[in-house]
C-alpha cells in the first residue's frame, strides 16, 4: 500500500466512523434551562434550533436572521415590574400587561383565555391589527411574586413563532414562589 492510499483509507475510516456515530446517536432531547428574569426564577425548554440571548430583565429566543442581521422570528420572556396596587383579576392584569408592551388603538384583542401552566393561572392573549385583522401576536401574562411575567412575540406570530411560543409557554416552570405570589 502506498503512502497516498494509506492516507485515503484512514480518511475514509474517519468519515465512516463519524457517520456511524451520528446515525446511532439518539435524538437529543430538549434541554430545559433555568433563567432569572428579574425576580422570577423559571425553567423553560428553549425551542430546538433557536438561540437564547440573556439580556437581564428579558430573555430573547431568536431564530433565523436575514442578511441585515435582523431577527425574523422572536419570542421574549420578560419581567414587566411590580403590579402595584395589586389587580383583582387576570383580565385586568392582561390589560395592564398589554399596555406596558405597547398595545394601543391600532390593535385589537382577538382572543384571551385563562390557562393553567405549572399549576398557576395565566392568561394567553392573541392580538391582531385593528383594521384588517392581520399581523397576529401572542402574549402570556403570569403573576409571580407580585411581579408580572410576560412571554410574547414582539413581531408577527407566524406558524414557526407560535410553535416556539407554545413550546416555551407549555414548559414554563416557576422555581421560586414569593410570599405574595400570584397563586389563587
Amino acid at each position: 500500500m502506498t503512502r497516498r492510499s494509506a492516507v485515503m483509507c484512514a480518511a475514509l475510516l474517519v468519515v465512516l466512523s463519524c457517520g456511524c456515530s451520528r446515525a446511532e446517536a439518539p435524538a437529543r432531547a430538549p434541554v430545559p434551562r433555568e433563567f432569572e428574569v428579574g425576580p422570577h426564577r423559571v425553567r423553560v425548554v428553549p425551542p430546538a434550533g433557536w438561540d437564547v440571548f440573556d439580556q437581564g430583565l428579558q430573555k430573547r429566543f431568536r431564530k433565523r436572521e436575514d442578511a441585515k442581521g435582523l431577527a425574523e422570528a422572536e419570542v421574549i420572556l420578560r419581567d414587566l415590574g411590580r403590579v402595584d396596587p395589586p389587580l383583582p383579576d387576570l383580565d385586568l392584569l392582561a390589560d395592564w400587561g398589554l399596555k406596558e408592551l405597547g398595545h394601543d388603538g391600532r390593535r385589537d384583542v382577538k382572543s384571551r383565555r385563562a390557562l393553567t401552566v405549572n399549576g398557576r393561572e395565566v392568561v394567553d392573549v392573541e392580538t391582531w391589527s385593528r383594521l384588517d385583522h392581520t399581523y397576529p401576536q401572542r402574549f402570556l401574562f403570569a403573576l409571580n411574586a407580585g411581579h408580572l411575567l410576560a412571554l410574547h412575540t414582539p413581531r408577527l406570530a407566524d406558524a414557526e413563532t407560535v410553535k416556539a411560543y407554545e413550546t416555551i409557554r407549555d414548559s414554563l416552570h416557576f422555581l421560586t414562589i414569593g410570599a405574595d405570589s400570584g397563586r389563587r
Binding site: 391589527s129 385593528r130 383594521l131 384588517d132 385583522h133 392581520t134
Partner: peptide
C-alpha cells in the same frame, strides 16, 4: 371576509378606517 386568494390591507384613506 372573502375566501382564500384575497390579500388584506388596512384602509385609512378617504375618511374611512377599514379593511381592503
Amino acid at each position: 371576509p372573502p375566501p382564500a386568494g384575497w390579500r388584506r390591507e388596512g384602509e385609512t384613506g378617504g375618511g374611512v378606517k377599514g379593511a381592503r
